[in-house]
Amino acid sequence: MPIYLYIERTGVLHRLHPTVKVFALFVMFWSVYWVDHPLALLPIGLLILAAAESAGAWPNFYRLRWLFVMVILFTTLTWMIFYRRGPALIDLRIIHLSRASLLFGLGRGLKLAELLATSVVFLSTTKIEEFTVGLSTLGVPYRAGFAITLAFRLAPLFMDSAITVYQAQSLRGYDFNRGGPLERIRRYVPVIIPVFMGALRKANATAMALEARGFGRISRPTSFIEYPVAARDVAASMMLVAIGAIYFTIYYTGYGAIPLR
């Protein structure tokens, strides 16, 4: 099973200029950020689904299906309970359910799911080298941009390591599911420590290998791959600016907010 999300294809999203892809990521996050109402979040959700279809990213969504389910369910339910505004439909002292809290909870769940889905589409269509180029073009210093993208490369390796450590401790009879929520979190210490120590070693080894290959020798390294700007990049950028503007307008005019009555 591949450990990275990138899917080798030649679709239009794959062929976008790296800077446009990073810009798209920013615009989608921006747009989702400004609105809370599920109906306002719906169009952008549909846009992401269309992008996923175009990018052929469904296998990655399938791989992460439980994460999506958990994020949506947990966030929605938590906010439904703790958002205590609007006339109550059900009021049990701790739990205060209102039309506003239902909408807000659902909106928060959708919001997080859309952020996650945008990231999945981005990583399905963007190689880490492209990510670095995109960040660099947008003004992020090369070393910082490379460090960010390296984190994306190493994260799956650390996840892999965490699974192995979990298995090793389980085989020694350790029960991760004992006790209440706080106790359960505490019980992950036998996983966290080995993974953290391994991550430190891996990061050190990677840093040494990078420097030994000349990383950091010049502030703006050249790029092996040429990324020419095409008409589709201009069109996509204009569309992204429009989306960003529309969502800011929705926020500014108050249409994206949750009505309290």
């Binding site: 990275y4 990138y6 190689k127 880490i128 080298e129 390296l150 490369r153 891996k202 080894a205 990677t206 290998a209 990078l210 030994a212 290959r213 000349g214 990383f215 950091g216 020798r217 010049i218 390294p221 050249t222 790029s223 092996f224 791959i225």
Partner: peptide, 18 residues
């Protein structure tokens, strides 16, 4: 720990880019 790229050609090019 010493491979950072997504394809073989790019891996070889990495040090030259630097």
């Amino acid at each position: 720990a010493q491979l950072f790229s997504t394809n073989v050609a790019h891996e070889v090019a990495f040090a030259m880019e630097q």
